[in-house]
């Protein structure tokens, strides 16, 4: 545990001592709950259609695959015409692209970012490394199977997959969402203990709350 995260007493500028516990003060700790769909099937269908056509990707390149996402913004591939955008903050994104190998150290940041995204959220695993470790299958610090730690909606194979493959993967994801099967966030909430146990098995210095909203 890092020193700045420990519980301690701080003297404020007005001379009053107060207790600071960063892990509890800065985050909401309540575990995630399963959020039901809208009451009406028609409304939920409309929402799902809008969600599918408005994928906001969290701009967090976790590995080398992030280099394949940049061409998607350029004139040649132009993902914007499919309603795909990049957002800089997890609060506004609903799609997390795990781009390539994921080291244990990055996994920690990924979990924090993932948990801060609002509920219908999707994860795309990009490249072989997220599927079975790829060329890092015997690495000491790279996870070999993403779906042990986060609920994954779509895997895109390849090392690296071309931008065209990415676009095809996003289209597949859209089909899944439109069919109402993109319930990764609820799955995460349902099997929260299982996911947390898996995460804690590989992240040894767990210095964050169990759930950080």
């Amino acid at each position: 545990m890092k020193q700045e995260l420990e519980k301690r007493w701080v003297k404020g500028p007005d001379g009053v001592d107060f207790e600071v516990e960063p892990l509890r003060d800065y985050y909401c700790e309540a575990p995630p709950t399963v959020m039901p769909a809208a009451y009406s099937k028609i409304i939920e269908g409309l929402f799902n259609w809008a969600r599918a056509e408005s994928l906001w990707i969290l701009g967090f390149g976790t590995g080398c695959g992030a280099i394949e996402m940049r061409p998607l913004m350029t004139p040649r591939f132009d993902a914007y015409r499919y309603g795909i955008q990049w957002r800089p903050t997890p609060r506004q994104s609903n799609l997390f692209v795990i781009s390539g190998y994921l080291s244990v150290k990055t996994l920690k940041r990924v979990i924090r970012s993932y948990e801060q995204m609002p509920n219908p959220k999707y994860v795309v695993g990009l490249g072989s490394c997220t599927i079975n470790g790829g060329m890092y299958f015997d690495s000491y610090n790279t996870i070999t199977r993403l779906d042990e730690y986060l609920p994954v909606d779509v895997y895109i194979t390849g090392c690296m997959p071309r931008p065209e493959a990415l676009l095809a993967g996003f289209e597949e994801l859209k089909r899944i969402i439109r069919a109402g099967k993109g319930e990764g966030a609820n799955q995460y909430a349902e099997r929260f203990d299982w996911y947390k146990a898996n995460q804690k098995r590989v992240i040894h210095d767990w210095d964050m709350p169990d759930y950080n909203w």
Partner: peptide
């Protein structure tokens, strides 16, 4: 180590 830790597919 990887096989023991990372649940290989």
């Amino acid at each position: 180590y990887s096989n023991e830790t990372f649940a290989p597919r």
